[in-house]
C-alpha cells in the first residue's frame, strides 16, 4: 500500500498557558476539557491518524469536542501547540500555468517539493499557504467563511487558480464553467455574487472553489448543517459522487450521524478533545464500544 496522503501524529492544541497536569486532568474520563489547575482549554490532545487516497474519514462528536479545531489545524487556519503532520502530494508541473508575475518569497516561487516525512506545521507561512492552495480544498459550514460574498461566484473559484499562477482569463472561466457544471451551479449566473444565491447554491459554489485546483485532500466542515433536508440530500449526493469520482482523500466533520453513514468509510469519535473510538463506520454505528459512542448512536433520532 502506498504512503498515506496525510498522517497526523500527536496533535495538541491548548488555548491558555498549559501546565503539566493538563493532559491528566482533562479528557473523556474527567468529562471536561478545561484544566482545573491552569484554566487552559485543551481543545485537541494526542490526535493521531492517517488518511489514504480515496478514503473518506468521518469525525463525529458533540459541540466542543475539538473536531473543528482539528480540521482548522490541518488546514493551517490555527497553529497547533505541538504535533507533526506529513503530507504526500503529487508534484505538479509548475510551469504549465506559471504566471511570470506571480510573486515569490526569498527567491522561492510557488510550491516547493517536500521531503517525505517533513513536518509541515514547521514550514514558513508562505510555504503553508502554497501547500494549502495546492493540496487542500475546504468547504465550511458557513459560506461566509469560505466565500467572498460580494465578488462574483466565478471570481471566487478563479481566486484559487490565480493563487496558483493561472494568468489567462479565458482559460480560468472555462475551468470555472466545467466545475460549475459538475457541481450543478447555473452557469448563466456564474458572475453573480454568492450573496444573491440560496444556501444550497452557495455550498455548491464553495465545493466548486474547493475542487478548482484538483486538491488531494478535501475537508468538509459540517457542510449540510443549516440546509433544508431536500437540499441536504442533493449536496450529499454530489459530494459522495465527487469523492468517488476524483478518488480524493476526504475528511468529513459532522455531528450528524446520517451524514457520516452516507459519506464515510472510517470514523473517529471525539469527546473532550480526545479520540475515544475509531474504526469502520458501519462497525461503529452497528456495534459501538465506547459508552459515549453508544450514547451518541442511541440518541440518534
Amino acid at each position: 500500500m502506498s504512503a498515506p496522503v496525510l498522517s497526523l501524529k500527536d496533535l495538541n492544541k491548548t488555548y491558555g498557558p498549559g501546565c503539566s497536569q493538563c493532559s491528566s486532568l482533562t479528557g473523556p474520563e474527567a468529562e471536561r476539557n478545561v484544566c482545573p489547575a491552569c484554566n487552559s482549554v485543551v481543545a485537541c490532545a494526542d490526535i493521531s491518524f492517517s488518511l489514504h487516497r480515496g478514503e473518506v474519514l468521518g469525525i463525529v462528536g458533540e459541540s466542543g469536542s475539538g473536531k473543528s479545531t482539528l480540521l482548522r489545524a490541518i488546514h493551517f487556519d490555527t497553529e497547533p501547540s505541538s504535533g507533526t503532520m506529513s503530507l504526500r502530494f503529487k508534484n505538479r508541473n509548475n510551469n504549465e500555468e506559471n504566471n511570470g508575475l506571480l510573486a515569490g518569497v526569498n527567491g522561492h516561487k510557488g510550491l516547493q517539493g517536500l521531503d517525505v516525512g517533513t513536518n509541515v506545521f514547521l514550514l514558513s507561512s508562505y510555504a503553508k499557504r502554497q501547500l494549502r492552495n495546492h493540496f487542500m480544498g475546504i468547504v465550511y459550514q458557513n459560506p461566509m467563511l469560505g466565500l467572498r460574498m460580494h465578488f462574483s461566484s466565478s471570481g471566487n473559484v478563479a481566486e484559487r487558480l490565480l493563487m496558483d499562477g493561472w494568468n489567462n482569463v479565458g482559460r480560468m472561466r472555462e475551468r470555472t464553467r466545467t466545475l460549475f457544471k459538475r457541481t450543478e451551479v447555473d452557469i448563466s449566473r456564474m458572475d453573480e455574487p454568492p450573496s444573491s444565491f440560496s444556501g444550497g447554491m452557495q455550498q455548491r459554489v464553495q465545493i466548486a472553489r474547493a475542487l478548482s485546483n484538483e486538491p488531494s485532500l478535501l475537508l468538509l466542515d459540517e457542510v449540510t448543517t443549516g440546509l433544508d433536508v431536500s437540499v441536504q440530500a442533493r449536496v450529499l449526493d454530489l459530494l459522495r459522487s465527487l469523492t468517488r469520482e476524483l478518488n480524493l482523500a476526504t475528511i468529513v466533520v459532522s455531528h450528524d450521524l446520517g451524514v457520516i453513514r452516507l459519506l464515510t468509510s472510517r470514523t473517529l469519535v471525539m469527546k473532550n478533545g480526545r479520540i475515544v473510538e475509531s474504526g469502520l463506520t458501519n462497525q461503529i454505528l452497528e456495534d459501538p464500544q465506547h459508552p459515549y459512542t453508544q450514547l451518541l448512536v442511541s440518541s440518534k433520532l
Partner: peptide, 18 residues
C-alpha cells in the same frame, strides 16, 4: 506583503474584466 499573498489583487483585476 509578507506572505506574497496577492491573489486578492489579482482577483480585483479579474472582477474588473468580468
Amino acid at each position: 506583503h509578507g506572505d506574497a499573498d496577492y491573489s486578492s489583487m489579482w482577483l480585483y483585476l479579474y472582477e474588473d474584466i468580468v
